[in-house]
Design a protein around this nucleic acid. Structure first.
Lengths: 127, 127
DNA sequence: GCTCAACCTTCCAGTTTATGGAAAGATAGC
DNA sequence: GCTATCTTTCCATAAACTGGAAGGTTGAGC
């Protein structure tokens, strides 16, 4: 399986697939006689796994850990839960932060006339 | 006013202040005879303005624009409002995205036993 | 006047997670 | 055999800084 077929199945750009093996996130695939990377179904499954984890905002380093757990038959679900809970707390923190930004900015936008005059509460607030 | 005093007043790291003039976000400060950067109160006010805008998640390019408006006596508040509304919509989009991540991940975390056994709905979901 | 710490300078490299492109070799279809 | 479409490697770029090295400046204390 050439890289473009593997990338397609995994739902990732070719460049990204190459990049993931470059940084050692997935093991280097075998090569054909002419040097083309050759992917097997197990590697493709790992790529899919990584794509999904990335979509959940897990960092590349988180993915390394998750992949280790994914491949470890003897992992405890507690280890996985710990990583996920961590990520969940990050998400909640970001949500709180965004909420506060949202509230302030939306108040400012609402009370700005948005007309031709220079008067602007948004600028005044930042000033 | 040396760079560290200016940085302190603006609430920014020295490195960042230097960086902002390097990329032309603020005009290059004058120099003392020995080459030290010398900041005046007006520059410090601009740095504060930038810090606040950055805290609101405006990009450096947004800041360039906002700074232009900040310095323009004849700006229309509509121009400022447009930038801010834009940013507000970005914030809302990010909020929706995070909410959906949060819900899925929190369901998964809740139904994971988090014990010594390998069984794990989180891994199963990503798989 | 000397010393020493705490400044300041520039320059280079690294962070994170890719993405874009150039130059050159491989393969498949006609 | 030609041509289009792969593939390879290598280098550059993105955003917004941050860290560190090597070396010059300043001011306080003695």
């Amino acid at each position: 399986m050439n890289i473009s077929a593997a990338a397609m199945e995994a739902g990732l750009p070719v460049k990204t697939v190459r990049y993931y093996s470059e940084i050692g996130l997935v093991e280097a695939p075998s090569r054909t006689a002419s040097g083309y990377r050759s992917y097997d179904p197990a590697s493709v499954r790992k790529l899919v796994f990584i794509r999904r984890a990335r979509e959940f905002g897990f960092s590349i380093d988180d993915c390394r850990e998750l992949l280790g757990l994914y491949q470890d038959q003897n992992r405890s679900s507690a280890d996985v839960k710990a990583l996920a809970s961590n990520r969940l707390e990050q998400i909640r923190a970001k949500q709180r932060e965004l909420q506060s930004l949202h509230d302030t900015l939306s108040d400012l936008v609402e009370c700005c006339n948005g007309d031709e005059r220079p008067d602007c509460p948004i600028i005044d607030f930042l000033r």
